[in-house]
Simulated assay, not measured.
Amino acid sequence: MSTEPQPIDGLPSYAELRTRTDAPAGSNWFLFGRDDQIGTLNLLRHNSLCEAAGEVRDGTAFHLDLPSDALTSSLAPTRKPAEHRIFSRTPYHHDEWLDGFYTQYGSQLDGLRHIAHPDHGFYNNADPRRFTTDDGLLGMANLAAVPIAGRAVLLDIGRYLEGTGAPLDHLSGPAVGVEVVEATAQAQGTEIRPGDILLLRFGWLDWYRNVASDQVREGLVTNQFHTGLRQSHEMVAWLWDHRVSLVAADNFALECWPAQPDSPFFTDPEIHGGHEDPHAGIMHRALIGLLGMPIGELWDIDALAAACAEDRRWSFLVTVAPMPLVGGVGSPANAIAIR
């Protein structure tokens, strides 16, 4: 089965986007309208819910969010686990609140306020001076209102590489190139259709929960080398040219962390000026900032992947329900797969 992209919407290819002179090169800015705030979720229009419902065969649902206590310590130095408070007004009543709730702590969806391109700014030239809690520009409420539901496919990269005898060594944080992504799709016989939601399984969460020692897990916040996609224009092209509406994975940042030294997404000051930025060279800048593609991270895909591998069926229906937080930067994913 061919996995070549089948564009049906008249939108430019990524190669054509990189030649733009009316907007930042490599961006799709203004192609969905100058006031657009949902980016590649516009592509869900190609993803018929009636057809997506046909992907449900055995009626099994999978919750793709980690429990709140699944990460024993934060994976990012700026994010901490929430403090959960419960109180009672009477012996027959309970209520609760959260202190220090970081919307992108666990299984999450990065919104379009999250990352800008350092040279060009935020998606669709949105003015970051409006990024306040009472202004909805590029906020999560826009993504929640879409709503996000449709056909999804899983590419089980970790299982594919294990089958080739070259499993990923998550301790060293390997970079996975686009050729491996494509080879996985070919080996599975998986067709990616315009508007699909794409899930990538590296096997990172399985390693984190079942293989990594307590010492290794505790050290991840300071010694961050995480498995993920290699930063490249070819990878961005693969996602855009396949008209992926949303991409999510079971690892820390979708892409490998930190960015590879040959990443094409370093800015000139980062290359020549020694500018210290933990986000230097990351592909988020192209995916979120230039294409408006929401990114899911730390999704709990293992049980779903096992079911897919058992019957060799890698497509299903997915719903994603981010918090309708006005002005929100990110959200718990609240994702469910039904197959």
Rank of each mutant, 00 (worst) to 15 (best):
I86D: 09
Y123A: 02
L138C: 05
P67Y: 01
F131A: 08
F101G: 05
H63A: 14
A76T: 11
T90F: 00
I115A: 09
R79Q: 11
T90M: 00
W97A: 08
F87D: 09
G136D: 12
R129P: 10
E96I: 00
G121P: 03
G100F: 05
T60C: 11
A126C: 05
F87Y: 12
T133F: 11
S88V: 01
N125P: 08
W97Q: 10
Y105S: 04
A76W: 12
F122S: 05
S107A: 01
G139P: 06
H117A: 07
Q108A: 12
E96C: 11
Y92S: 12
A126I: 04
A82D: 08
D134R: 14
L64D: 05
T103H: 13
F62P: 06
D110K: 08
K80V: 09
L98T: 08
G136Y: 00
T132A: 10
P77F: 02
L138T: 02
T72K: 10
Q108P: 06
D110V: 00
P77Y: 03
P128S: 04
L98E: 14
A126Q: 03
S107Y: 02
T72R: 14
R130Q: 13
H120Y: 15
A116T: 07
H94E: 11
T132L: 14
D65E: 07
G121A: 02
G139H: 02
H117F: 04
F62Q: 06
Y123Q: 00
T132I: 07
G59Q: 00
D99G: 09
P67R: 06
Q104Y: 11
F101Y: 15
R129S: 15
R129C: 12
D65P: 04
G139R: 00
R129T: 15
T78S: 13
T133A: 14
L64E: 06
G139W: 01
T78V: 10
G136C: 06
L112K: 05
L66T: 02
T133E: 15
L109C: 05
N142T: 11
L75G: 05
N142P: 11
A61S: 15
R113C: 00
L71D: 03
H117I: 00
L109I: 09
R89T: 14
H63T: 15
T78W: 15
D134S: 14
T60Q: 13
D127A: 06
M140E: 09
G136N: 10
P77T: 06
W97I: 07
T72F: 11
S107Q: 00
N125G: 15
S68W: 12
T133D: 14
G100N: 09
K80T: 13
G59K: 03
A126S: 09
I115K: 14
G100I: 01
F87N: 07
A61H: 07
H94C: 12
A116N: 15
Y102F: 14
Y123M: 05
F62I: 03
T103V: 10
H63E: 14
